[in-house]
């Protein structure tokens, strides 16, 4: 797929109306370690994210970086032993638990990653239609038939159980579950795990279509190529922190327009960009913030990096969490 083909999405205006605004979100978990000692585990910290109508924002991070929790936080389905801090706004209104419960299944939809998210003992049709009153059932059924046609699904799939679906069908069924509610915001959590090129392409096309219909999309993925192919903006996660927010077109050429050293390293590790692997792994314990989270792996660190973690700062409409970049832009 060529670069220009990817980005010629006609309806991406310069400043789409903001649908979801996430600012300074932190998610932590309470756990009991040795005996009854209670410990707090900070999994996501100081997360900022904006999604506009018709916009696809990719959230990119390796597994364990806490990106799935973001999806759960937006839908208000975090487990009971977690704590969510910070502020989310949906269409300008504060998105608290009550509003989340009102909006989920109505304006906000989740596309989960696997068949495990379907009730194993309920027929596909009943799951897609969802919990509706009898008088609305017929309308929803017709709607489902239409969606099935769009997704190239046979109509009799409605009578199957999840375990009878193939991988490709499952993915399209999962997409159907969100389309039937006609959502304004779609959170797709790893919709392309372990797929070949073709099904990835197909899945991304579905997402693009959704965005072209004016829906805001958060695409959570660990695959940089997937992210770059469809997204307008890419948010990079590292150890639970957002370390960079950049425009998709900057993920091109030799990656010079990328800001954070981690993002650059990630980009250069792609086969077509040199296949340069870099050493080390993400630190999991984030309780110590006496240095930059990337300090241990960074090759261009300066003195300041060793004793404090930088803030996320805005540069030309992009965002980055790095003292070196700050210095070069002389902020």
């Amino acid at each position: 797929m060529s670069e220009d083909k990817i980005n010629n999405r006609e309806n991406v205006t310069k400043s789409p109306k903001t649908l979801l605004n996430v600012s300074n979100i932190s998610i932590s978990f309470f756990q009991y370690s040795k005996g009854l000692k209670k410990i707090v585990l900070h999994v996501v910290k100081e997360l900022y994210l904006d999604v506009g109508e018709g916009e696809i924002v990719a959230v990119l991070g390796s597994s364990g970086s806490g990106k799935s929790l973001l999806a759960h936080a937006i839908l208000g389905i975090l487990p009971g032993n977690s704590l969510l801090e910070g502020e989310m706004k949906y269409n300008g209104k504060i998105l608290d638990q009550k509003l989340k419960e009102e909006l989920r299944g109505d304006e906000i939809a989740l596309i989960p990653q696997s068949v495990d998210f379907l009730d194993p003992l309920m027929k596909i049709g009943d799951q897609i239609i969802g919990d509706v009153t009898d008088d609305k059932k017929e309308g929803k059924k017709r709607e489902m038939t239409k969606i099935f046609k769009n997704y190239n699904l046979r109509e009799d799939i409605a009578d199957l159980y999840p375990f009878q679906l193939s991988g490709g069908m499952t993915r399209r069924v999962l997409f159907s579950t969100s389309m039937i509610i006609n959502p304004k915001l779609v959170v797709a959590d790893e919709p392309t795990p372990g797929l070949d090129e073709k099904p990835i392409e197909e899945t991304l096309n579905y997402l693009k279509t959704m965005a072209n219909e004016g829906r805001g999309i958060i695409l959570i993925t660990h695959d940089i190529q997937t992210a770059v192919k469809v997204a307008d903006k890419v948010v990079i996660f590292y150890s639970g922190y957002v370390i960079e927010v950049n425009r998709t077109e900057n993920f091109s050429g030799n990656g010079n327009k990328l800001l954070h050293p981690y993002t650059r390293a990630l980009y250069k590790a792609l086969p077509q960009n040199g296949f340069k692997l870099f050493e080390g792994s993400q630190p999991m314990n984030m309780d110590k913030e006496d240095k930059c989270i990337y300090y241990d792996r960074c090759r261009q660190s300066i003195e300041k990096c060793s004793h404090s973690n930088p803030d996320l700062v805005e540069i030309d409409g992009m965002k980055v969490r790095c003292y070196v970049v700050e210095k070069s832009y002389e902020i």
């Binding site: 759960h72 419960e101 989920r104 299944g105 495990d116 379907l118 009730d119 194993p120 309920m122 919990d131």
Partner: peptide, 27 residues
């Protein structure tokens, strides 16, 4: 109640007794 499909049903707006009936008791 802590399974993925129960969580997803919640994410789709199902709640309360109806959620228990549709996905809990069934399973």
């Amino acid at each position: 109640s802590s399974s993925d499909y129960f969580l997803f049903a919640k994410a789709r707006g199902e709640k309360g007794w109806s959620l228990i009936k549709r996905h809990g008791i069934r399973n």
